Simulated assay, not measured.
Amino acid sequence: MDDRASKDAKVADAARFLLEARASRRSAPPPEELAPADEAEAWAIHEAVVASLGPVVAWKVGAASPQAAPGFGLITADTLFKSPARFAADAFVLTAVEAEIAVTFRDDMPAREAPYSVEEVFGAIASWHAAIEVLDTAFADWKATPALWKVADRQSHGGLVVGPGVSAPPAGPLGRLAVKLEIDGETAFAHEGGNSAGDPTRLLVHLVNARRATARPILAGDVVTTGSATPFLQATPGQMVRASFDGLPPAELSISAG
C-alpha cells in the first residue's frame, strides 16, 4: 500500500472509530495507532466523520485568545435544534453546556479574490441568536484527550440549540455583551463578555474568508456559533438550561430525568 493509500485508510479507520464510539455511547481511550499525526490529518478525519452524517448546515468557530488563530468545525442537521429543545438523559456522554452568540446568514458568501470586510459579513447576516452548544466526546476522559483528537472528533460538538432570532446585532461590542447561564432557574454564570477569543466579530469574518475559496463556502441559511461566553458546565439528567444575552431572546434546553 502506498503512502497516500495508507493515510487514507488511517483516516477512514479513525472516522469509523469515532462514529461507532459516539453512536454506541461507549466512550473509549484514543487508539494510539489511529492518532492524527498533525492538524491536517485531524481535519481530514473530522471531514470524513461529518461526510457520513449528512450535509453541513452550520459551523462552530472559536479561538483560545484574542490573538490566537481561530479554529472551526462542521455541524450537520442531526445536531442542530431550535429552542426549546429536549434531550434524553442518555443522549450525550459529556453533556457540557456553554452559552454562545450565533448568527444565521441571509446571503451566500461565494468565492472571490478580495477578503470580505466586517461590514460585508454583518450585512449578509439575517438574524442574531442566543445559543447553547452541548459538548460531547467519543472518549473516556475528555479532559485528558489530546487536542488533535478533539479536532478530529468534531471539535467536541454534540448539539447546538439556537434561540429565536433578531434582525439587528445586539447593541455594544459583542465581546463585552452581558451573558447569563441558568440551570433550573438558578444563575450559574453571569458576567460581561467571557469569550476566550474576545470579540466574536473576528471569528465570523475569519470563517467567511477561510471558506470563501473552498468548495463549501458559507451559504444562505447557514448558522454559525461563535464560541463559549461562559465556563464549561456539565449538565445532568432532569435539569433545564437557559442561556441569555442582552438584546437576544434566550435559548433553552432540558434533559429528561431518565
Rank of each mutant, 00 (worst) to 15 (best):
L177A: 15
A229P: 09
A21G: 06
D141N: 14
A168T: 12
A9Y: 04
S24I: 04
N209C: 01
L135N: 05
S244G: 13
A12Q: 10
R211E: 02
A138Y: 08
V241E: 05
V97W: 04
E39S: 08
A21Q: 11
E33V: 11
A42T: 09
A9V: 10
A257S: 09
E182W: 09
S196M: 10
K143C: 03
G227F: 05
G227M: 07
G198V: 08
A152T: 14
A215L: 08
D38S: 06
G172Q: 08
T76P: 10
T201A: 00
L80H: 03
W43S: 11
G73Q: 05
H206Y: 12
S52W: 12
I218L: 03
P29V: 13
K10R: 13
A152C: 12
E252R: 09
L204A: 12
A243D: 07
A144N: 04
A23S: 08
A168E: 13
G193V: 11
Q155R: 06
E98I: 12
R86L: 13
E47K: 15
V93S: 13
L80T: 02
A42C: 10
A188T: 04
T226Y: 00
D3Y: 07
A144G: 15
I218V: 12
A130G: 14
S65Q: 02
H191L: 05
P110I: 02
E182V: 08
P70V: 02
F17T: 13
V166G: 02
P36Q: 02
Q234Y: 04
A197N: 03
L233H: 14
D136N: 09
I183H: 09
P36T: 10
M1V: 15
T226A: 00
E32Y: 05
K180Y: 04
Y116I: 01
D78H: 13
K143N: 09
T187D: 06
T226N: 01
H191C: 07
T230E: 10
A12S: 14
E182S: 15
F232G: 05
V57I: 07
S228A: 15
T145R: 07
F81T: 08
T137N: 07
F232V: 05
E120S: 03
P36E: 03
T201L: 00
R16N: 11
A9R: 12
S256D: 15
R106D: 00
S256F: 06
E33W: 13
V11T: 11
G238K: 10
V208H: 00
V161D: 04
S167W: 01
F232Q: 06
E47W: 03
S52A: 15
I45G: 11
V103C: 01
P146V: 10
L53R: 15
W128Y: 15
A51M: 02
A40I: 09
D2V: 15
K60Y: 08
K7T: 15
T214M: 03
P66E: 02
